[in-house]
Computed example of a mutant assay.
Amino acid sequence: MDAPDQFMTMPGTDVVVIGAGMVGAACAYYAARAGLTVTVVDRGGVAAGTTGAGEGNILVSDKPPGPELALARHSAELWRELGDTLGGARIELEHKGGLVVATSAAELATLRTFAAGQRAAGVEAYDVAADALPDYEPHLATDLAGGVHYPQDMQVQPMLAAALLLRASRVRVLTGTRVVGLPRDPAGAVQAVATDRGLLPTRMVVNAGGVWAGEVAALAGVALPILPRRGFVLVTEALPALIRHKVYAAGYVANVERSSADLQVSPVIEGTRAGPVLIGSTRERVGFEPTFSLRALRGLAAEAVRLFPVLGSVSAIRAYRGFRPYSPDHLPMIGADPRVPGLHHATGHEGAGIGLAPATGHAVAALLAGHPPQVDLRSFAPERHDVHL
């Protein structure tokens, strides 16, 4: 068989979305709803990267007042709409709520101050006294100081959601297709996407490449400081329903915001409809090192048993790992890139990509269609790091 001719021209399209994960699928969905023709290109398969290694968090509980919380609140509204459109049961969208717990009086004071700021920004957050925690989670450890209940937190099966969103979009999807260039016209604007299967003429490109978004940007001559941040999840044997909410320790928020490359472990524990309990989360910057870290997995198990002693007699049947697209200031990069006309970015969400995907896609689609987005994107401006190649 002859090698593919990367200079063969394929049918053109208004927009090419690079990346078929949850963020790319949302960008394609809302762009198609805006009346644009869309082609999605991915080097692997649908949800084959970070999306396929995620827990499906849709959280407002972990975000301080500010631009990311505003994005999360809009996204939560859109997720509820998508539940109606795609079928909540089909994508396993669960309105389970979150419970954040503190292990000490000092940690509880910090947590409640954090929650008070969120309430002022419109988040539903309810203080829970230590003696009331069993009403929410009967199997929690009995020596916890208290917590905060966030009824707006949700959960989704991310691979199902991404696949069904692309199906609902009715867009062209080219999987197993590597982007090798972003040709530009004499004025510097994008005019096509070159792939190893041929050339896709277009005037608008969305870089939703996740941990590979920096490589995509480099093809256009600009740099995005996106780095992979590795994380592990433990999966238990199937169990009767033990855990009602998404439960995590108050230190989780601090670990998300830390910039250290070292291993950080903070328990995030939840049940699933199928029965297994998912136990996350770890964070460390080790490049794309694929090795499974026994230290990280032991840390997860120990933290889970600390919060739920009943898990001490439960077997872990497997573990999986993925790489989150890490941004140095912990904010995603969303919007048009003024350095390259026609190029847009939707990346850098780290572990919040599933939750923030609908609002990200909605905002990017508005820009592509020439309309102002509903959410202020200035804090997410891709050029804020001002890095050129």
Rank of each mutant, 00 (worst) to 15 (best):
R229G: 10
M333H: 08
G54E: 01
A218I: 05
Q264K: 12
G214I: 03
V256T: 13
G98R: 04
S260V: 10
A145D: 10
F292M: 14
S259E: 11
P138V: 12
L307Q: 06
G35F: 01
A363I: 10
V100L: 13
A121M: 13
A162V: 02
G209Y: 04
W79L: 02
R285E: 12
V256I: 12
D2L: 13
V40G: 00
G271C: 08
A115W: 01
L300C: 09
T110I: 04
T236Y: 14
G353P: 00
A352Q: 15
R230G: 05
L108S: 00
G56L: 08
T9R: 13
A238H: 08
R170H: 15
P358C: 03
L343V: 07
E77G: 15
V265N: 01
R73T: 09
G52D: 02
R384F: 07
E55N: 13
E107D: 11
A47P: 05
H149A: 08
A249I: 03
C27P: 01
L36K: 01
V216W: 03
V156S: 03
Q118F: 13
V268M: 14
H330K: 12
G176E: 06
P382L: 09
R197P: 04
A53R: 09
V123W: 08
T39R: 01
E257T: 08
V128I: 14
P134S: 01
R90Y: 09
G98L: 01
A208Q: 06
C27M: 05
S259D: 04
V128S: 04
H349V: 04
G348E: 05
V15F: 02
P382D: 09
P183Y: 15
V310E: 06
V101L: 12
V256W: 11
L182S: 11
R244S: 12
D143W: 00
L242D: 07
A302Q: 13
A319T: 11
G335I: 10
A189K: 07
F232K: 02
G122K: 09
G56H: 15
V375A: 10
V156T: 05
S379T: 04
A249C: 03
V375T: 15
E77A: 14
P64C: 10
S293T: 11
